[in-house]
Amino acid sequence: MRKLSLAVIGMYISVLSAYSQSTSAGDSSHYKSKKLNLDEVNLVTGYYQQTGDHSAVTGGVGTEALNDIATTIELRLYKYDRKQRRHNFNLELGVDHYTSASSDKIDPYTISSPSHSDTRVYPSIGWTVQNEEKKTTFGLTGSLSNEFDYQSYGLGASFTKASKDNNREFSARAQAYFDTWKVIYPIELRGGAEHNEESSPRNSFSASLSLAQVVNTNLQLLLVTEPTYQNGLLATKYQRVYFTNSDVKAETLPNSRVKIPLGVRANYFLGDRFIVRSFYRYYQDDWGVKAHTLDLETPIKLTPFASLTPFYRYYTQAAADYFAPYAQHTPAEAFYTSDYDLSKFHSQFFGAGIRLVPLKGVLGIAKWNSVELKYGHYIRSNNLQSNQLSLHIKVK
């Protein structure tokens, strides 16, 4: 039952997406196995540590100290069918454990409530079939996630079509998540008919449309949009809101939300040793949040077997219509939150990663293809700070 900052979520998404690079549909060998083969194994483990003084659990004031350790293992397998189509199977299991000082304030009279720490388990499975002749890929995914007050089930489908010369690629993806929350109120607000819900659903439906284009040997572009619609319980009921008349209530937000991000990515190759990767995204939703993101990453090949990747991200957003700081909401408002993730702020995230790909394998182990260590530091204008460290091991 944690209220993680957007930074930690973004870290794990970026780590896993960066490391889970797709295997090329082409195969240089003449023989294509019709048996199921192990392609590679990816192990990603990360540590996240956060401090801050605007906890939403206590109405926008108080500690946001949090620690999280996450580990994900992914198995990638493949086989060819009689029509020489390549079938890829991804099996993934993730486990993370957190401790949160602010969550323990839901009931401050306990020594250590269940919300103070928890373990989340999230397995997933994916399948894609690649038709090399038609330049198409179709895929399906399924996922589960479980912790003591929260369960989620996810389904997804994807389609990709490349041009004959492989210089252009269109991708479409649709995903749906069906979540169930155990509704928990702050200790002083429990009791009464309005606070007796046991559980409540939340559904999320998203799509992704992207178009990638190789402009020339140095420049690649990608345009992407990822609209999302959510409905159900979108407020976090154990987060308090304090009013100008000294009343205290549980956070209340609309039961639907529409998010529309638009992004453009440009990768430029400066010879054999340098790459400039840039990404800009504009975001808007019907809660009044508008945001801009600028991402820069510059992998530098130090040797044929080692590379260094410094990165920097700047983010700025306008506050949601329903946000106000501690004790600044008025009793007449229908929706209200003091969650600083929905406030006006700007943030920076910067750091570097180092990747080793020895010719004879890491530590002389031939199957141990590569190892990468990445560190990032996050600072936000409302005093939230975090440190993030991740390690990726690939066996191939």
Rank of each mutant, 00 (worst) to 15 (best):
A212L: 14
R168Q: 07
L233W: 03
T51R: 10
Q175K: 09
V371T: 11
A320I: 11
Y185E: 06
H116I: 00
A366L: 00
I393S: 08
T316W: 06
K344L: 02
Y242N: 10
A327F: 07
V41W: 11
Y153E: 06
T236H: 04
V371P: 00
P325R: 04
A366G: 01
G26K: 11
Y268T: 15
A212W: 14
T309R: 03
V241N: 04
V224R: 13
T293H: 13
N166Q: 13
L253R: 07
S200A: 15
L189G: 01
S307M: 12
S390I: 01
S103N: 06
S206P: 11
G26Y: 10
L43Q: 12
K3W: 04
P261T: 04
L75Y: 14
N218E: 15
G94Y: 07
Y242C: 09
L155M: 02
F243N: 08
V41K: 10
S204Q: 05
L77R: 08
H377D: 06
F138T: 11
S28E: 01
R380E: 14
Q328R: 06
Q385I: 01
R313S: 14
H116Y: 05
T316I: 10
G60L: 09
R202L: 15
H97F: 12
N67P: 00
N37Y: 06
S256D: 15
A266P: 06
H292P: 08
M11K: 06
N203R: 02
P108E: 12
R82L: 13
N196T: 01
T303N: 04
N231A: 01
S163K: 00
G376I: 01
F170C: 01
A352H: 08
Q213G: 01
A193P: 00
E147T: 04
Y78F: 10
L219V: 14
T337W: 10
S14H: 12
F323K: 02
F138G: 12
K83C: 10
V41E: 09
F323H: 14
Y153L: 10
T137R: 13
V224W: 05
K79Y: 08
K301C: 00
A327K: 11
G288E: 04
D286T: 10
E226C: 07
S20Q: 14
A65F: 03
R313E: 13
Y12G: 12
N37V: 13
T236S: 12
Y268V: 11
S390D: 00
Q388S: 13
E251R: 08
A306F: 05
V41L: 14
A65L: 03
G94M: 13
I300Y: 11
L302I: 14
A193Y: 00
F305K: 12
F178I: 10
S206F: 08
V121S: 05
R240K: 12
D68V: 09
T330Y: 08
Y268A: 14
S208A: 09
N231R: 03
K394Q: 15
D39H: 13
Y238W: 08
T119V: 11
P108R: 07
A319D: 09
A235R: 04
